[in-house]
Simulated assay, not measured.
Amino acid sequence: MANNEKFSFTKAERKKAKLKLNLNGASGSGKTYSALVLASSLGKKIAVIDTENESASLYANEFNFDTLPLRPPYSPDRFIGAITAAFNMGYEVLILDSASHEWVGSGGCLEINDEAAKRFKGNTWSAWSETTPKHRKFIDAILQTDMHIITTTRAKTETAIGEKGKIIKLGMKAEQRDGYEYELTVSLDMLHENKLAVPTKDRTKIFSPEGEVITRETGQKLLAWLNDGRSQEQALQDSFNEALNRIASTNDIAELGIIYTPFKGTDCEAEIASACRNRKSAILSTQGHA
């Protein structure tokens, strides 16, 4: 039987984009300063949501920006409200310093989940069914709000025990939900000893794998790349490939839902959903609940 549905094709074009970037590092690694350097090249009207005891204001003599000191509780809803307010007030660039508080801070997602677990008689897996959608809305606010957004995250050093009990440094783990860096355009680790920014994810291909000091020229290069844009098809393909890698490596059933959500309604939805189901079965089997 013939399909009477009409399809319309339009000429593919490269789209301008808004930067979504994270700077991850220990205290004193230069996250806040570097964020302000980048922001100054991306736009003139800059806002900072400051959860770090107004540390950004220490640079008020060098950069022109407005600030919102955000106090506890650090719930996803309050961050979303602040992001929305910044957009409605016409800011071109928003710095969220830091996004770690939404996850590990007082009133953040981990505390929210602990409270939810009490209603589920200590079952934290069931509690995440309530907490994860709240966190997902926070991520969506960052990704979907039409302005440049730079976030920072606090880092802690991951280690392992090697041969003869030697402690081996594995890298810097952000104090945010696992996989946070995969959501963004660029994610950089800030090295404390030399203030170099080392890319852990870089769709722009601008940053040296060995790391570099962030300057205003860095921001100008990012802005040029954003204004040049890229095809939506290529962007979706990149996200699809990243999602498959994340699905294959995660042992967190709740994270599978986070990975799946952005693909709802896309051509990739069926494949992502199938991969998530298969991975969920494998996780449950490993846990002995299959």
Rank of each mutant, 00 (worst) to 15 (best):
2 A>T: 13
10 T>W: 07
21 L>P: 14
26 A>M: 12
39 A>G: 09
39 A>I: 07
41 S>F: 03
42 L>Y: 05
44 K>M: 02
48 V>L: 09
52 E>G: 09
53 N>Y: 10
53 N>A: 13
58 L>M: 13
62 E>V: 02
63 F>E: 10
65 F>K: 03
66 D>N: 06
69 P>E: 11
71 R>P: 00
75 S>K: 09
77 D>W: 03
78 R>T: 11
78 R>I: 15
80 I>K: 07
89 M>F: 06
93 V>E: 05
97 D>T: 06
101 H>Y: 13
103 W>K: 12
107 G>L: 13
111 E>M: 11
112 I>E: 10
114 D>W: 05
114 D>E: 14
116 A>H: 10
118 K>G: 03
124 T>A: 00
126 S>V: 03
132 T>K: 09
134 K>S: 15
140 D>H: 14
144 Q>D: 14
148 H>L: 07
149 I>L: 06
149 I>S: 05
150 I>G: 05
158 E>Q: 08
171 G>S: 01
175 E>S: 01
187 S>V: 07
190 M>C: 11
190 M>W: 02
190 M>S: 13
191 L>M: 08
193 E>D: 13
196 L>A: 07
197 A>C: 04
199 P>W: 07
200 T>M: 05
204 T>W: 04
205 K>Y: 08
208 S>F: 04
210 E>D: 12
216 R>Q: 12
218 T>G: 11
220 Q>K: 15
239 S>L: 07
239 S>I: 03
244 L>C: 04
246 R>T: 01
249 S>G: 04
251 N>I: 11
253 I>A: 06
263 F>G: 03
269 E>D: 00
270 A>Q: 14
275 A>I: 02
280 K>A: 15
283 I>C: 15
285 S>W: 10
287 Q>D: 13
290 A>D: 15
290 A>H: 12
